[in-house]
């Protein structure tokens, strides 16, 4: 994330150099860090797939300047993100907001692990009992097993 610091600062230098826009206040360290973090989570719309921190595109430069101006103006991170979303939609957010349509996106990974672990444990348990047929059984066990397995297809094992 921090690699974005450079890009943001850099673009300001260009912006001031080119446009001569001197209306920008220097930000303190906290403000700079916030600007960097915000720029790294926003997508540049004109680029193929880059954050506005990474991009050289003019729109990205403008939006970085917007972030700067708004932070200097005392806006909170949430307000700045709102500003972007009202103009460009959720598309600008590289960290999609959690809502009904993105629930599966955010919960999916946990769900995969959960289902995976449950299936794994059940598999391990049933497998152990099924693979028991490896071991020589006593007559009584054999009978019991046959009763238990009645209906189920007997499985070969090596």
């Amino acid at each position: 994330m921090k690699r974005m610091i450079a890009s943001v600062l850099f673009s300001w230098a260009v912006a001031t150099g080119v446009a001569g826009a001197n209306d920008q206040k220097e930000l303190d360290a906290v403000g700079k860090a916030r600007a960097v973090a915000l720029a790294a989570e926003l997508r540049c719309l004109v680029c193929q797939n880059q954050t506005i921190a990474d991009s050289h595109a003019e729109l990205a430069v403008d939006l970085r300047r917007q972030i700067h101006v708004q932070i200097a103006g005392g806006k909170s991170d949430a307000e700045i993100v709102d500003f972007m979303v009202t103009r460009y939609g959720d598309f600008v957010l590289y960290r999609p907001p959690f809502k009904a349509t993105t629930a599966f996106l955010w919960l999916g990974p946990a769900l995969f692990v959960l289902v995976g672990v449950i299936v794994l444990l059940r598999f391990l348990r049933t497998r152990r009992t099924r693979a028991q047929s490896d071991v020589p059984l006593t007559e009584a066990q054999r009978k019991m097993a046959a009763e238990l397995l009645a209906g189920a297809t007997p499985r070969e094992s090596q």
Partner: peptide, 11 residues
């Protein structure tokens, strides 16, 4: 048709 989103490094 549920909208356009971006999923990037933060995710």
């Amino acid at each position: 048709q549920l909208g356009k989103i971006s999923v990037g490094p933060p995710y």
